[in-house]
């Protein structure tokens, strides 16, 4: 039953993503990537989810802190984690999935090694963030939510990083950058590529 649900959900995700990609006339990359196949959920991950569930089950309003902890630990929220979390918190799977899918922060697929958030909000637009945005998409060969072919970077849109007096702003993992012109973005990405 759950496997069937998962399959339907995965199919739906693929369909929606293809639609979105086509709409944006995405030229290369994302459609051919095999990123939407089922991830492997192993015993270690299952234990991690169960241990975190046990740790957060006692606090008031545990679901968001727990999901954040799972994502911090595993990099994303695997679909197999959802029934485990639901059982631990005495919620339905639909309630847990509903929360996972509601918030931009939660991801349901493994990201690249680093997550690059580009600010799209007005203050950054006033400083020509659109050229940085176009350059990022071109040079990484991906659109938003995509991961570069080398697996280094997943690109995400942010709607304000709180650095509005020094836009355009970019955050890579938890490191914030200001006044990110296309040239500066190239330097920053090159720097991150060499990090381990």
């Amino acid at each position: 039953m759950w496997a069937a649900d998962t399959f339907r959900y995965e199919s739906r995700v693929i369909f929606l993503r293809m639609q979105a990609a086509q709409r944006m006339q995405l030229l290369h990359g994302a459609l051919t990537e095999d990123r939407y196949s089922m991830s492997v959920f192993d015993e270690t991950q299952a234990q991690a989810v169960d241990a975190l569930s046990a740790r957060f089950a006692g606090i008031p309003g545990p679901l968001l802190p727990l999901l954040r902890a799972v994502q911090d630990e595993l990099g994303f929220i695997p679909s197999e984690a959802i029934p485990r979390i639901a059982e631990a918190l005495n919620l339905s799977r639909a309630e847990v999935y509903g929360v996972v899918s509601f918030y931009h922060y939660f991801r349901q697929h493994a990201p690249g090694r680093h997550v690059v958030q580009l600010c799209r909000a007005e203050a950054c637009q006033a400083m020509n963030s659109e050229s940085t945005e176009a350059h990022a998409k071109n040079s990484l060969g991906i659109d938003y939510h995509g991961t570069s072919a080398d697996g280094q970077f997943t690109l995400e849109a942010a709607y304000c990083l709180g650095n509005c007096a020094a836009g355009p702003s970019v955050m890579i993992d938890n490191k914030l950058y200001g006044r990110v012109t296309p040239e500066r973005l190239d330097q920053i990405l090159a720097d991150w590529r060499t990090r381990q």
Binding site: A121, E122, A123, C124, Y159, C160, G162, N163, C164, A165
Partner: peptide
């Protein structure tokens, strides 16, 4: 949850 673009006083 200071989400407004152009605001950072809370932060």
């Amino acid at each position: 949850d200071e989400g407004d673009s152009g605001t950072f006083s809370d932060r």
